Simulated assay, not measured.
Amino acid sequence: MADFHYQQPLLGYRDDPHQQTLCTQVVKAATAVTAGGSLLVLAALILTATVIALTIVTPLFVIFSPVLVPAVITVALLSLGFLVSGGFGVAAITVLAWIYRYVTGKHSVRHKLLNKALEIKDYGHQQISGGLQTS
């Protein structure tokens, strides 16, 4: 049997994997601080841009609100109409496919199992009643 020797990772792990060197801890901390600081600065920039954009756009919203409110309601109703019609279309196709399978005799597995169970039941009754008549 071959004797396998595992290589230790390069960043300062010793015999105990939970024991890390100071260098590894410093590298991890520096990476975390850099990533966290970058994300924090990015979040602050986005927040500032959002506040500035909202300040600029608010008067436009007030001026155009008689147009925007009906436009938003219209777009919402159109979207809802397309969504509902699509749902009904999918339901109709599903029902038609089920009817087609039912008419052509390609029932689901449940119907096949139910029919087979009824056949076995009838066969059992025939065997029992046939056995009683011959004796």
Rank of each mutant, 00 (worst) to 15 (best):
P70M: 10
L45N: 12
D15T: 06
L47W: 12
G86I: 01
K121G: 05
H5P: 00
F4S: 08
L132T: 12
T34D: 02
K28S: 04
A53Q: 12
A2R: 10
L10A: 14
S85W: 05
R101N: 14
F4V: 10
V75F: 01
T94C: 01
V67H: 07
P66C: 05
V75I: 12
E119F: 10
L96V: 09
Q20S: 07
R110Q: 13
I128V: 15
T58A: 14
I63M: 09
K28F: 00
R101D: 09
F64G: 01
I128E: 14
K116N: 12
S38I: 02
G131V: 11
V103Q: 10
K28C: 01
Y100Q: 11
G124N: 15
G81M: 09
N115K: 15
F82E: 03
L39I: 03
V67L: 07
Y102W: 13
Q19Y: 03
P59F: 01
Y6P: 02
K28E: 00
S135N: 13
L114S: 14
Q127A: 13
G36N: 07
R110T: 11
K121S: 04
K28Q: 08
V75H: 03
K121I: 08
V51L: 11
L40V: 03
Q8M: 10
F88E: 11
Q133L: 14
F88Y: 08
L113K: 15
V72D: 05
I56Q: 10
L132M: 13
T134H: 09
G12V: 05
H111D: 06
H107N: 03
Y13R: 06
Q8N: 07
T94A: 11
Q19H: 08
V103C: 08
L11S: 11
I99D: 00
E119R: 13
T48K: 10
G81F: 05
A117T: 10
G37D: 00
G124W: 02
T31A: 10
H107G: 01
V41T: 04
V67G: 04
D3V: 13
A92I: 02
A2Y: 02
I99A: 07
T31N: 11
V95W: 03
Y123G: 00
D16L: 02
K106L: 04
L22S: 10
T55A: 11
P9W: 06
L54I: 08
